[in-house]
């Protein structure tokens, strides 16, 4: 997925000279996650900008540059540091178009690595996409594989609205076929059926899709056919495939890497009960991280996190 993201960025910088990248260590370090490898050699310092360690200024300057007519792709090293930039993203990027009634547009992308790492500990192991998705004016997306990563990032850069684009660290090394077409994009807000099934609907995004797909493999051995829907975008949220699937399965389990309170799972469950009540045969189950800050010790770190087995267990509870 790392290469797919790099190719996407590269193609968009080739296509449009107003696209530039900025962030901590994006130039001579070649990106903390190596997504901007070799960019500095190709595009130079005017389009590949190392910044000071200044998340507020990175996000805020991206807002200003975007308002002025450029297309900044700002990298926040990990989503955990985006809390420092929360004001610039939420109070400014997301609100400027509305607050000034359409006088400005803010075509910026904030890229941020997300998810739990190898014992990265509590302050460095979060997936707070749902918090950002709470706010109108911003789009929030998170791809689950390399193909989607390329198509979604390109669409995000081309879009005239501000986008928070998160990339699951654990998925960076994961390969999958990627279309070579330089105009291949996946529209913002388009969900995807990753696996067909008519017994239960598994709803996920990002890393959760992996766990759902693994769980579906296991369940198949027991004769349970699980559909897996990848929402891809938390905002705009496309529930059409989920509802379509739910009408057949009448059961759903939401899989999320993040915390359970006021979460992605809460929203999906709420929407299913509001709109699909007549089709419900069982409560919507949620598989989330444990409701604790993530610890360092690997044994208990793993206990805190979702996995395929937890998804299988949740499905069996409602079959």
């Amino acid at each position: 997925m790392r290469d797919a993201l790099r190719i996407a960025l590269h193609e968009e910088m080739e296509r449009d000279e107003t696209v530039f990248v900025m962030g901590e260590e994006v130039a001579y370090w070649h990106g903390t996650h190596k997504v901007t490898r070799e960019f500095i050699n190709e595009y130079g310092e005017s389009r590949v900008k190392d910044t000071p360690i200044s998340e507020m200024a990175i996000a805020g300057a991206a807002v200003g540059a975007a308002m002025a007519g450029l297309r900044p792709v700002a990298e926040i090293m990990t989503i955990n540091f985006a809390f420092l930039a929360f004001d610039a993203i939420i109070n400014h990027a997301a609100k400027i178009r509305y607050m000034f009634d359409g006088q400005f547009k803010v075509p910026m992308v904030v890229r941020a690595a997300t998810g739990w790492g190898m014992q990265a500990t509590a302050s460095h192991s979060q997936t707070p996409e749902p918090i950002f998705a709470h706010f109108p004016g911003l789009y929030v997306g998170c791809p689950s594989n390399a193909r989607d990563a390329k198509g979604m990032l390109k669409a995000a850069i081309r879009d005239d609205n501000p986008v928070l684009f998160t990339e699951v660290i654990a998925l960076y090394p994961k390969p999958s076929p990627v279309p070579e077409d330089t105009d291949f994009t996946i529209p913002i807000g388009k969900s995807d059926l990753k696996r067909e099934g008519d017994h239960v609907t598994l709803v996920a995004y990002g890393r959760g899709v992996d766990w759902a797909l693994q769980a579906a493999d296991q369940l198949e051995k027991d004769g349970v056919r699980a559909a897996v829907v990848d929402l891809r975008w938390l905002r705009p949220l496309d529930m059409s495939i989920v509802f379509e699937s739910f009408k057949q399965t009448n059961r759903a389990v939401v899989v999320e890497e993040s915390l359970p309170h006021y979460s992605f799972g809460s929203e999906i469950a709420a929407q299913i009960q509001e709109k699909m009540f007549d089709y419900m045969d069982a409560p919507v189950k949620r598989v989330s991280a444990a409701d604790v800050p993530l610890p360092f010790a690997h044994d208990i770190e793993l206990m805190a996190l979702p996995n395929a087995q937890k998804v299988v267990d949740a499905v069996k509870e409602i079959l």
Partner: peptide, 16 residues
Amino acid sequence: GGHLPLAAGIAIKARY
């Protein structure tokens, strides 16, 4: 203070 980085960002365009 929220508009200060925006000012910097607007000025990026002039240099760019």
